[in-house]
Write a protein that binds this DNA or RNA. Sequence first.
DNA 1: GAGAAGATATTGCATATGCAAGTTTCAGAG
DNA 2: CTCTGAAACTTGCATATGCAATATCTTCTC
Lengths: 148, 148
Amino acid sequence: MSRHGVIDEIAQGCLMGRARMLARVLTGIYDDAMRPFGIKASQLNLLVVVAQLGPIRRIDIGRTIHLDSSTLTRNLQVMLANDWIEETASAEDGRGRPLRVTAQGRALLQKLSGAWKDAQRKARKLLGTDGEAMLLDLSSGLPRPDAP
Amino acid sequence: MSRHGVIDEIAQGCLMGRARMLARVLTGIYDDAMRPFGIKASQLNLLVVVAQLGPIRRIDIGRTIHLDSSTLTRNLQVMLANDWIEETASAEDGRGRPLRVTAQGRALLQKLSGAWKDAQRKARKLLGTDGEAMLLDLSSGLPRPDAP
DNA sequence: GAGAAGATATTGCATATGCAAGTTTCAGAG
DNA sequence: CTCTGAAACTTGCATATGCAATATCTTCTC
């Protein structure tokens, strides 16, 4: 242990650092599980949001899972190209072109659900019951980005 | 709530999704705090690891904070260019060129420590005492990527 | 109905992340 | 001493992420 208080404090205690590390480790687990299906774990998470809440606008997806709109524009492009999701309204809509899951997207979700459960099991084992509960609780408690 | 079990289960319960979301929210808090200092929060976390454990090789940084080597190659380049860190050994080292913090890097750490503490306070407030303890605990309990 | 105000989406720029493949360098076998 | 294998690093490719600025479309006001 070094004698530089600030450095140690940040290195050991930074909540962001810990959260990012945890996210990296978990992402690895789920990405491994999803690889056979040609979908990244982060894309799966977007897909289930659209499947559950769609038709839903990008901005509302962002509010739900704390993602920037510009990130969504790009991440969703890949998913649109893969025909997992589609835009609902015609181009003349303008402000907001809500997205929904396609039949293919829904089928994919069914196909990979077993693999996802395996990954979830592994993650659960890694975190322990307490950890799992706390993580779910923590993320539920996050204040929604100001809705109008 | 929809009637599609799998979708709801993943949307609500995916530990990876929650962890990534939490990481995004926290990253926002610390990035805001670090912006005046011209350093990203993720870079700060790398910097403190080097400051605390340096001279340290990329691979060992990776093992410590669960980061891929290729990611480190690139992320550290920016920090080398900013003269926050430097390579220690002369070119004849070969396998492994350990990194250490520079005087400038150390000075930067001192300068931003107050702002970091503010961010940490905000994060703590957001997560609560329980959440904080659990997050620190969780991330400490992660199995070290196999050391030789 | 034209123009202002506001919301939504996209684009440019920079960084973060990881896999697979390739490179460099060291250490040990013979 | 040379060859070979392992370890550390780098590069190519693809995706993820967010800020600032811009574009687009809606609605409200006059």
